[in-house]
């Protein structure tokens, strides 16, 4: 991990650190006596990080029983144990985006940052010398195609598009044809944001995936783009998209605000899905690989 990445992540999570870290320091600072008040406070702190009431109480209970067995004497010990617990819950997978050749669908609800993520990953991959093509299958939102075109230009990558209102599956079909002609090894497909409880739109997405699988000689992966400010509904989102598409991973965006992204821990844990990238800023290089321990540490301690 480069230090600049850590700096960015730590910077992005600064408020989280202040709030969580201070709370924990304050809790521990009350003295060696770790009573009910301490554990209640810890649970509350985790809830405030969007980890969810259930996981927060499970983590608290696990720490509590560990403290009885092993004796966690001071702030440092509690903090380290907490980081370990959170990091250990998240599944470890190799980076699916490193595979080549590959077709990737970017899916998620409205406004999470799908188009931006496609643009950033295209730039990253093209910069690394891969032959990339982008497909703009968000034919619903006004100007989504224009937005993606700007990103494609920035990355100097070809983009395949059709008119607004066209069948998104047909865009995928065309994109894969262009990919074959160009000899591309990475196909990135942006899809329209949709609420996960909309049955027809989820079926439309499943069709996009079917067409991609039928037309692509490459493996097809589906990544859910989720916003770090998302609350407990993130689990319902992830579950619905997972049911429809069998997701391969998560991109967690907008970690540069005060949102703590605790929902990512809940999703990774409950669905066994890896987080493949995290967005810690607006510039191209701010979409970064994910490391569970670093993430947990930045989330809790900021160091």
């Amino acid at each position: 991990m480069s230090p600049s990445w850590l700096d960015r992540l730590s910077g992005g999570l600064a408020r989280t650190r202040e709030q969580l870290g201070d709370r924990i320091a304050e809790l521990v600072g009350r003295g060696p006596e770790v009573g009910e008040g301490f554990w209640d406070g810890l649970e509350e702190t985790l809830i405030a990080a969007d980890m969810g009431a259930g996981p927060a109480s499970a983590i608290t209970a696990a720490l509590k029983s560990r403290s009885r067995r092993e004796d966690l004497p001071d702030a440092a010990a509690v903090e380290v144990a907490l980081v370990d617990l959170i990091a250990a819950q998240m599944p470890v997978h190799p980076d699916p985006l490193a595979e080549s050749p590959l077709t990737v669908l970017f899916v998620g609800i409205n406004g999470t940052g799908k188009t931006t993520s496609v643009g950033k990953i295209a730039a990253e991959a093209a910069g690394a010398g891969r032959n990339v093509v982008i497909g703009s299958a968000d034919t619903y939102r006004a100007a989504a195609i224009e937005q993606l075109r700007v990103w494609a230009d920035r990355a100097s990558v070809p983009i395949v598009e059709r008119e607004r209102g066209a069948d998104p599956a047909s865009v995928v079909f065309d994109t894969l044809a262009v990919a074959r002609e160009n000899g591309s090894d990475l196909v990135l497909v942006d899809t329209a944001g949709r609420l996960h409880n909309s049955a027809d739109l989820m079926q439309e997405l499943a069709k996009v995936q079917r067409v991609a699988r039928a037309q692509s000689v490459f493996p097809v992966k589906s990544l859910l783009v989720i916003d770090a400010t998302t609350g407990q509904n993130g689990i319902a989102q992830a579950r619905a998209f997972h049911d429809a598409l069998e997701l391969d991973g998560i991109i967690l965006t907008k970690l540069d605000g005060t949102a703590r992204g605790g929902i990512a821990v809940a999703i990774a844990t409950q669905l066994g899905l890896p987080i493949v990238r995290i967005g810690v800023g607006e510039s191209l290089e701010d979409l970064r690989p994910f490391d569970a321990t670093e993430f947990a540490r930045a989330l809790i301690l900021g160091r």
């Binding site: 609420l195 407990q232 005060t258």
Partner: peptide, 30 residues
């Protein structure tokens, strides 16, 4: 869909921009 952070963001906007009211979007989700 925003989680616990909604309040933090809203408080900051209230301090810096001083808004008068709220539009809550995406309530057609679950």
């Amino acid at each position: 869909m925003t989680g616990q952070d909604a309040v933090t963001a809203a408080t900051a906007f209230a301090e810096r921009v001083d808004f008068d009211g709220v539009i809550v979007t995406k309530l057609d989700g679950d």
